[in-house]
Nucleic acid binder design. Structure first.
Lengths: 187, 187
DNA sequence: GTCTATAGTGCGATAGAC
DNA sequence: GTCTATCGCACTATAGAC
């Protein structure tokens, strides 16, 4: 038998979400999460930079998907069209686990620290988008604005999607709808 | 002579910004800020909910200004026009102290925790905007989208403004420019 | 105004995989 | 032997409880 069971990372994530749902984020200590996952608190902090990060480690996959989608977009695509493809990729990375994100959302909405981290992760995605647009020679004032606008679409659309009463709602479709509404805005 | 000097609040704010600029946010303890302001750490936490909040207490004035501007907007104004008036009010509350916000920005950009709090304050302003639009009978999916889009304008425009090399740039003008760019976006 | 719990860090030791 | 994941302990500062 191995000295330790493999997959500490996944066990910690699952233990954390379960405990946060049962007793709340603040009322759960890192030591308790670690114990439930069969490791020590010191190991928790080796996997996650801080207590909150256990709920947000999925963002890396989204970043990668968006960057790849932008790099592969047609050369003549407009900035907004490129952002649309990046949003499609985000939907691809997120949209197949609505149950998980609904549970996670309950925890996040109950705690300000977690909301802060969520916004920071979204800001990081905006940076990825802006960098991807600049890579395609979109000049910086416009690249920044389109990137931030696309993240607004992601935030608003994601919220509609997790709050929706129907399982059948597709995240990708929702994001495209919101993007259409945004570019349709008039003063 | 009074038992304590008046304006502990203002002294704490000033002491905090000075120390954060000199030695960095993380390297400064609450006890040091309190000592420089002539109070105890306990008093610091009576004035500010946590260590970070000392840099963000100005947000309340912005909230109030935006809410008032929206309530006073013409009855036939479009949602985007109402958001524009709210942005004008935000510029009014912020724009006259560019030096302060430039210094503050140096501190915030050097620390992730502070960036998280900043994003949370902006999200709070989005809530104010959405509520103000709903008050004017703008239905909720649109109210939310316009509110979040306006905060995108505020974020992008504020950043251009503090980063500008010229003292003469006006925040209100900048926000109007960015709002125009956003509603001008096409797919 | 003091006391305490918890988050988070640094470092050395350990045990297995390769 | 090297590399990696873990433990265990000592330690500081925040933040809240008493």
């Amino acid at each position: 038998m191995a000295r330790w069971e493999p997959g500490a990372d996944g066990r910690l994530r699952e233990a954390a979400l379960t405990l946060f749902l049962e007793r709340g984020y603040e009322e759960t200590t890192v030591a308790e999460i670690a114990q439930r996952a069969g490791v020590t608190a010191r190991t928790y902090f080796r996997h996650f930079a801080d207590k909150r990060e256990v709920l947000f480690s999925g963002a890396e996959g989204v970043r990668a998907g968006m960057a790849e989608a932008m790099a592969g977009a047609p050369a003549d695509a407009t900035p907004v069209a490129v952002a649309g493809l990046a949003l499609d990729a985000a939907a691809e990375a997120i949209g197949h686990r609505r149950d998980f994100y609904r549970q996670r959302q309950v925890v996040v909405e109950a705690n300000v620290e977690l909301q802060e981290r969520e916004l920071m992760k979204l800001a990081g995605l905006a940076d990825v988008l802006a960098a991807g647009l600049r890579e395609r020679d979109v000049p910086d004032p416009e690249a920044r604005l389109v990137a931030e606008a696309a993240i607004t679409v992601l935030r608003v659309g994601f919220h509609r999607w997790v709050a929706s009463a129907h399982d059948t709602v597709d995240l990708g479709v929702t994001l495209r709808e919101v993007l259409g509404e945004l570019v349709g805005l008039r003063g």
